[in-house]
């Protein structure tokens, strides 16, 4: 009997029923652990998470969490999150009500045989080359999560690609 294949997890795209929670929190030690711990112990799934100081205040940070609304009812997630004392405000953004952006960085080998295909892919995605090495380039795409998904999918055909995404940030649509 051959040993089982190592389980690498399913390739996950954004869940069909996802919501974006824009969470204003006190900028205090351990706040991220409180949020992550809450999601873990209640069995809520986080798809992506981004944290940065909010506006110009050092006192607050904004955490943008894309939650899988299939893992638990959104009402439960928001209700439990709101009980964390360090959570100041929660804005629930349904995908259609939000402007979402994400940043993707990828380092791509530029071998002789794939060079033109690779450059073509980069150009078509609208990605910018931000670093150049002797045999590889690093490209950046700042765009919608769907655009990042598309570029990631297009790069799947190439080998030795190192790819990193930030997770999305979002704000409410104005109209």
């Amino acid at each position: 009997m051959s040993p089982p294949e190592p389980y690498l997890g399913e390739v996950s795209r954004t869940p069909v029923r996802h919501h974006i929670l824009s969470v204003l929190v006190e900028n205090k030690a351990g706040v991220l652990a409180r949020i992550a711990g809450l999601f873990a112990r209640r069995g809520f799934n986080i798809y992506s998470l981004a944290v940065a100081p909010a506006e110009s205040h050092a006192r607050f940070s904004r955490v943008t969490i894309v939650v899988d609304a299939e893992s638990a009812p959104l009402e439960q997630i928001v209700g439990q999150l709101d009980k964390l004392v360090n959570v100041v405000a929660i804005t629930d953004l349904a995908p259609r009500d939000a402007v979402e952006r994400e940043l993707l960085l990828a380092t791509l080998p530029l071998g002789d045989e794939n060079r033109s295909a690779m450059l073509d892919t980069i150009t078509r995605a609208g990605a910018a080359i931000v670093d150049v090495g002797p045999t590889s380039v690093t490209v950046m795409l700042a765009g919608t999560p769907a655009a990042c998904d598309e570029l990631e999918a297009a790069l799947e055909g190439f080998t030795e690609v190192e790819l990193h995404r930030t997770g999305r940030v979002a704000l409410p649509r104005l109209a």
Binding site: P73, E75, Q76, G79, Q80, D82, K83
Partner: peptide, 8 residues
């Protein structure tokens, strides 16, 4: 008093 209990 705890809204997280609703519909849990």
């Amino acid at each position: 008093i705890d809204r997280a209990e609703f519909n849990k």
